[in-house]
Write a protein that binds this DNA or RNA. Sequence first.
DNA 1: CAGAGATTGTACCGATCGGTACAGCGAGTC
DNA 2: GACTCGCTGTACCGATCGGTACAATCTCTG
Lengths: 177, 177
Amino acid sequence: MPRLAEVFRSHGYEGATLALISQATGLGKGSLYHFFPGGKAQMAAEVLAGIDSWFEVNIFTPLRTSDDPARAVATMVGAVDSYFQSGHRMCLVGVIALGASRDTFAGQVQDYFRRWNDALALVLRRSGLSASVARRRSADALVTIQGALVLARALDDSRVFGQAMADMTTRLLAKPD
Amino acid sequence: MPRLAEVFRSHGYEGATLALISQATGLGKGSLYHFFPGGKAQMAAEVLAGIDSWFEVNIFTPLRTSDDPARAVATMVGAVDSYFQSGHRMCLVGVIALGASRDTFAGQVQDYFRRWNDALALVLRRSGLSASVARRRSADALVTIQGALVLARALDDSRVFGQAMADMTTRLLAKPD
DNA sequence: CAGAGATTGTACCGATCGGTACAGCGAGTC
DNA sequence: GACTCGCTGTACCGATCGGTACAATCTCTG
């Protein structure tokens, strides 16, 4: 499964051919279609679901249940930085959102970002921010993460990612303006 | 050419099949390969070059030659908003940066963002910012634009893009911290 | 050890991929 | 009207696409 995810991550949905998948996982087509009768679409859907549940456990839930906003944000940033390997690893959800396969997985993609956004806004509200400011800042954080991944990869410079994460943290924790 | 660009934009490099290109442009394969003997790669390269020169004329040069930073930033934001149709249109350069075809066009992609970054940092320095702050803010702006495009598309909500552009403008023009 | 069910490799399917070859077409030139 | 030459449609190429069929093989239970 992790191998499968990595293929989609680095080749996109249309670029991830069954030959590549077969090679990366070490499984023949027979096995692949035994476990995923729905073919490529099902593989991608399950990978997305796996990512979703990783984020649910490691990011969303900690945000929702935290009683210390500053600490919660710091934890999130740490988890994000390690998950995306400081900008070297792509966000599959973002990659799919940009591709032609977006429509097929629109629901899952939307759900993922929406839940992240809600969880982050919740913890920001708890820090004393108004609902509108909290939502604005949480959306800004997601924008920054996705943009930092794009730009770091485009410029082939992971310092861009690190700097963006630092700036984002400052902005998230700034006192209400 | 604009039709060609739109095919790559909405399907990505690998997703843009010759059949789609032929249909979108109304040209048969014969004509396509007459104008682009290098095939798909040449088409994409020329589309990228076209985008690059559009940004050079409409964004980069105005930034470099402006003597009023606030006005220059406002003009850039306006041009960006109209070019990306308030978040409904994708950034082909970003799309390619994320795809498997990244390596093929790495030079062009890198050049595009680097020149944008340099031009924006220049105008920020002119507004009185130190070199390091100017570069940090300009990179932040590019991150925000790319991220806003990703998130707006993922959430299918162009308000995300508008809000991000507004926040970004404020940040770019804020007094030195 | 026998039998059942899960798992696998391999051959194969029609469709489509990017790309080539080439015969024709029309608009100019002499 | 013959000739060229830039352009176009079409037929075709081998390779690969996602997917199927199925026999062979494992593995586990009794």
